[in-house]
Amino acid sequence: MTGTLRRVNVRRVSIDIRDAYRRALDAFGQRVHLIRPGQWEVVTPCVDWDVRALVNHLVNENLWAPELLAGRTVGEVGDVFDGDLLHDDPIKAFDTSAHDAVQAAFAEGALERTVHLSFGDVPGAEYVTELFADALIHTWDLSQAIGVADRLDPELVDACANWFAGAEEAYRQSGVIGEHADVPVDADPQTRLLAAWGRRA
């Protein structure tokens, strides 16, 4: 995510955000490895994205992460990550990009470094938190599309929900997510989190 949001002051997650990010990407990657040959064109809960486009989106974010966490600007990176990044081996493309993104998040000083996004500068920790949340929610999207178990890690769900409570309105005003979905009063934490992101679980 190179940035379509306004900068907002939000609370931090309750666990090590680098580990949360790694675990979220691992979970998404597990689903990527379950994609069958005929499923790459299957529609996902994300408007206008099929499975291939969704995986390409995550690869795009993964490739941006090392560059931005190293202090480069969007202008300096340019359009090198535009277009199809999966080529003829989508699984390898994701695995390689995820490994490099996690390494960048764990690099010394990455969370304290200023990250230059298109809408402004943010601390590295805030940027990695946004990446974590995106990977977590898209894990559910991919699970729905390919028909595999859609239960997310409860600890990651709680961490994301605590953070997103302070970021939800900015995401919605920026048009990144849809309207808050209706949920029963006794809905479980995952269903409530997905509803906040505009998903109907």
Rank of each mutant, 00 (worst) to 15 (best):
T2D: 09
T4A: 13
V8I: 10
V10L: 14
V10C: 15
R11V: 15
R12Q: 13
R12M: 06
V13M: 12
I15T: 08
R18L: 00
R18K: 03
R18C: 00
A20E: 12
A24T: 09
L25H: 08
L25S: 11
D26Q: 14
D26E: 15
F28H: 14
V32I: 15
I35A: 09
P37S: 09
G38D: 10
G38F: 00
V42Y: 13
T44I: 04
P45M: 03
C46M: 10
V47S: 10
D48W: 02
W49C: 09
N56A: 13
N56E: 14
H57G: 12
V59G: 02
N60V: 01
W64V: 10
W64D: 11
A65P: 05
E67I: 07
R72V: 10
E76A: 12
V80Y: 00
G83L: 04
L85H: 01
D89M: 09
D95Y: 02
A98K: 10
A98P: 04
A101P: 02
V102C: 04
Q103F: 00
Q103R: 11
A105P: 14
A107H: 00
G109H: 10
A110D: 02
L111K: 05
L111V: 07
E112K: 05
S118F: 05
F119I: 03
F119G: 03
G120K: 02
G120M: 05
G120S: 02
D121Q: 07
V122H: 06
V128W: 08
V128F: 09
E130V: 05
